[in-house]
């Protein structure tokens, strides 16, 4: 088992190198402000897609309400810093916990539903969260909560992203994580193997929701504002698309999906009228040619190039 620990340390080292390179590029303005912004956005989207992948890809529960948890994180984080004047670090923790708690409360009753019914219920709950926020004057109602300090930067997003990726990767490579995989593969057989399916479904949903909350805190503290319009079901679709495009149940896939779609969107920013049309055609064509997603449920690893190596999602640095 020592080689697993060695791999972890090697991956972490890789992250440090990647971080140093990126940070230098940003410092010397080789990466300009436009791309810096998009890199931060990519990081936030990676957190979102990786956390949704835990629910949809690994546990096989079809959830499309992720934007709701993103909103909860964004707003509770902003309340901590703007309304209460407390530090950003605390906002990150509270935002994560609140979204997780809500995920737990929502997951407990709704995860009894199957397939498309679960999908529409989570979609509805995401919308309900947004509409409730829209009606709370304390957080600015329909005009949004403004004046949020910019506390998020590349370093924050990078290291929080690495944290989330490692968290979920290690989760999946443990007994509880394997229980989730079993539920995805065959719920009845999983239950017969002694797995309390409700418990693990709710666990995956809670963890996924919590990290969406983390992404929300980072998001609102980068763009100065938390606005209800940023958290519609279209945003949930966005995240879902990243996960499916990359390949459900693949860490490398979720990361690649987030990088690719955010990147395409950024590249097309120069052609505002054509942007969404080209984006949608790209999406359709990619799905036509890779219906199982870019990675299927495999991981990017040395195995793809030569035999041997392990198949754990060791692509944290794939940014």
């Amino acid at each position: 088992m020592n080689n697993i620990r060695k791999q972890d340390i090697m991956s972490l080292l890789g992250c440090f190198v990647l971080f140093a390179v990126m940070q230098l590029l940003i410092m010397f303005e080789i990466i300009g402000p436009f791309w810096e912004l998009n890199i931060v956005l990519i990081g936030i989207n990676i957190i979102l897609s990786v956390s949704l992948n835990l629910i949809n890809g690994y546990t096989g529960q079809f959830s499309i309400g992720h934007a709701g948890f993103l909103a909860v994180g964004a707003y509770t984080g902003a309340i901590i810093t703007v309304k209460l004047g407390l530090p950003f670090e605390l906002a990150l923790i509270v935002g994560t916990l609140c979204a997780g708690l809500l995920g737990f409360l929502i997951g407990l009753p709704t995860l009894r539903l199957n397939g498309d019914y679960l999908a529409i219920a989570t979609l509805g709950l995401g919308e309900i969260i947004r509409i409730c926020i829209l009606n709370i004057e304390y957080v600015g109602g329909a005009s949004g909560l403004m004046g949020i300090p910019r506390e998020t930067n590349f370093a924050w997003v990078f290291w929080v992203g690495i944290f989330v990726i490692f968290f979920i990767k290690n989760f999946i490579n443990s007994a509880p994580g394997r229980s989730c995989l079993a539920i995805r593969e065959n719920e009845i057989a999983a239950e017969t193997m002694g797995i309390d399916t409700t418990k693990y479904k709710v666990m995956a949903f809670t963890i996924g929701a919590a990290f969406a909350g983390t992404a929300g805190v980072l998001f609102s503290h980068y763009f100065y504002i938390a606005h209800p319009a940023s958290f519609t079901f279209m945003r949930s679709f966005d995240i879902l698309t990243m996960v499916v495009l990359g390949g459900l149940g693949s860490m490398s896939g979720a990361i690649t999906g987030a990088v690719l779609l955010t990147g395409i969107s950024a590249f097309l920013a120069e052609y505002p009228e054509w942007r969404m049309v080209i984006y949608s055609i790209t999406l359709i064509v990619l799905m036509l040619y890779r219906p199982q997603g870019l990675f299927g449920n495999k991981e990017l690893s040395l195995k793809m190039f030569k035999l041997g190596g392990d198949n754990s999602g060791r692509t944290a640095e794939g940014k």
Partner: peptide, 16 residues
């Protein structure tokens, strides 16, 4: 079976 998973993972899950 947990058909997409490896043979050994199928058995490991039952030990969970």
């Amino acid at each position: 079976l947990f058909s997409e998973l490896s043979v050994i993972d199928n058995v490991k899950i039952a030990y969970n």
